[in-house]
Amino acid sequence: MTVSIVRPKSLTAATLSPALRLKDILKTLPKECFQKDMKKAWTAVIVNVLMVGLGYASIAIAPWFLLPLAWLFTGTALTGFFVIAHDCGHRSFAKRRWVNDLVGHIFMLPLIYPFHSWRLLHNLHHNHTNKMDVDNAWQPFRPELYDGMPKLIQQAYQGMRGRLWWLASIVHWAIMHFDPSRVEAKDRNKIKLSVAVVVGFAAIAFPLLIATLGFVGLVKFWLMPWLVYHFWMSTFTLVHHTAPDIDFQEPEQWHAAKAQLAGTVHCDYPLGVEWLCHQINVHVPHHLSTAIPSYNLRMAHESLRANWGAHLYESRFSWSLMKTITDQCHLYHAEECYQSFKAHHQLKG
């Protein structure tokens, strides 16, 4: 995929009024954007289950040289599982909370992702998008924090912000989502429940898979698609809020409408990825309101283009896009948004 980056229409020239509120933007969206459609929601579930089943079948019958394609398809379809659970976490899948919680837990099982843990921590990201020291998704390190770290941690961070970006989601999953202390005391039992659910699933599924297909079967049917899923998770999350001219703001300067409208990136991916992942990369309207179901995101985005187009940041997935991000967007810089590792080390001498 070697398509060019589509720069913002007039991002540098367009300014948002400090008095602008999120609800002012939301009032311009069609009311239909916020309406749940159970037929569309459950159709997405059925189709996604069929696609994941097709993916596993392709892994079972594919000759060795076609396995990478089967893993790519299956891992991308499993990312669709996550997006369905994502809607459940935001209560935009079903009207009943218990349905959202049940479906969310089920669809995160193959990913070994604790549903409530992800849901609660992800809501923090939505409430404080691009706010320094608060946002928990791809926040750049401050230079002084980076300088004070052991060399090994610095090198790991360089990898996660550089060419190894696709592993960052695994690190985030392992560090953040199995620790109940990261949420308020009143929610910790929910975290413990979700962790118990996925640990119990893994304790049954993994030994069964090894017993029937051997350790190679575990790698072939679970690990490789799981790594593809984390490639997309890392890529989607990084691209959603990262560009050389999209800034993280100090808490006292943070402006909700600016962060959610102009600090969130719309990125076009290949049609197959968009379809299997339920349009989650139509991300600007999702950050304006998590109540918009995934199947209504494109409708909402077209409305935003018509009314707020000068403030939208739109790009297209390509190696050049990822190279730009991973070459430049490393450390926090108050005036220039980001400072690269190279520039930082040159300044230090």
Rank of each mutant, 00 (worst) to 15 (best):
E274R: 15
D179Y: 12
L288K: 05
A185L: 09
H86S: 06
L193N: 01
L193S: 05
G148S: 13
L238A: 02
V183T: 12
L102A: 07
L102W: 01
A174P: 04
R7S: 13
F81P: 01
I325M: 05
S4W: 02
V284P: 06
P150F: 03
F73Y: 15
F201I: 09
K40Y: 05
Y157R: 04
R142I: 06
L347W: 03
A306M: 09
D187P: 03
M299P: 00
I61Q: 13
I191S: 03
V284F: 07
P293K: 02
M149W: 08
E335S: 10
N127H: 11
L312A: 00
V199C: 03
L218F: 15
W118K: 05
G104R: 03
E314D: 00
H344E: 03
G53T: 10
P30W: 10
V52S: 11
P114R: 04
S169T: 11
H230C: 01
S289R: 02
R188F: 11
I61L: 14
N123M: 15
R188Y: 10
D101H: 05
L347H: 07
V45K: 00
Y338N: 06
K323Q: 12
W319G: 12
R298F: 05
V195D: 02
W226P: 01
Y295M: 02
A259T: 07
H128I: 03
Y146N: 03
E335D: 15
A291N: 08
H278I: 07
H330M: 11
V49S: 01
L321N: 11
